[in-house]
Design a protein around this nucleic acid. Structure first.
Length: 271
DNA sequence: ATGACGGAAGTTTTCCGA
């Protein structure tokens, strides 16, 4: 079973690239962020034709998230229960554990996986209202994920976190010290999520140095590999033994009119 | 110190992202 996350920075612009990527990378679940479209504009038919179900939660201009999947989702929830939010940032669903061939399994929680796709707030800069919102949102997410983990031992939380774990995730950690995505407060909240019993999937496996998921459009940042790792897949302890591989696919960042983010992929053993 | 680029809204510029 393969799961992936990708901030597409406008699904209107990036739809052909998403379809191309799925044709080459037929993952079982793909979480999308920054759709930047209202629900009525969501291209559900294009995904159905590509063999994918979709659940989506859009918003005009900003935000918007979706889950594409081979198998149908159940228990779909939009945003964070218990946290009031004007913005469309989170969508979750439950899927059969395994590839499309194992959809006939019989329903116990151990045979399913809970997938949460999330677009974490940017935060703009420390001390701003948007930063305060980011901190409150992170606390709301954590309180909810704690209860989700009790219900669903097999859980993946993936998306655009807009937080780096540490300096290894930053091309210039000296320049970025205490800047947005790199502050102690943000990293505290990220570690608090980990402390719920989650694992940074990418770091379960050896990786090349200077591995990032986002590069600024400006100043040839991608060509110079001046980026940050801010897109993550966290998986629960129950799923950790199933993890086979995790990687960042830089290929779509080389497209014409690319998203500034690129996909992160997690492979789990078939069970 | 500033802006670079790209997307959206919608109009000749602004806001925002990261």
């Amino acid at each position: 079973m393969k799961l992936a996350t990708w901030n597409v920075n406008s699904l209107t612009v990036r739809l052909p690239q998403v379809l191309d990527w799925l044709a080459t990378n037929p993952v079982d679940v793909l979480a999308l962020q920054e759709l930047k479209m209202t629900d009525d504009k969501f291209p559900v038919q294009a995904f159905v034709q590509a063999g994918y179900e979709a659940q989506w939660f859009g918003q005009k201009t900003y935000n918007g998230v979706a889950l594409l999947s081979r198998a149908a989702a159940t228990d779909v929830v939009k945003n964070i229960p218990g946290f009031d939010d004007d913005m469309a940032r989170v969508i979750s669903g439950t899927y059969p554990l395994g590839g499309p061939g194992s959809t006939q399994s019989t329903g116990g929680l151990q045979t399913h996986i809970r997938v949460i796709g999330a677009y974490f707030p940017n935060g703009q800069e420390p001390g701003s209202d948007k930063f305060d919102y980011k901190m409150a949102w992170l606390k709301g997410l954590r309180d909810w994920v704690r209860t989700e983990l009790q219900r669903y031992p097999n859980l993946v939380l993936m998306g655009d976190y807009n937080i780096t774990f540490d300096d290894a995730d930053v091309w210039d950690p000296v320049d970025m010290r205490d800047q947005i995505h790199c502050t102690d407060e943000e990293r505290y909240h990220l570690q608090a999520l980990v402390a719920l019993g989650l694992h940074d999937a990418l770091r379960l496996f050896p990786q090349p140095p200077k591995i990032y998921s986002w590069w600024d459009y400006r100043d040839f940042a991608f060509k110079r590999n001046r980026g940050m790792r801010i897109d993550h897949i966290l998986l629960s302890a129950a799923l950790k033994p199933s993890a086979q591989a995790c990687w960042i696919d830089k290929t779509p960042r080389k497209n014409e009119r690319p998203s500034d983010h690129t996909p992160v992929v997690l492979e789990l053993t078939e069970k």
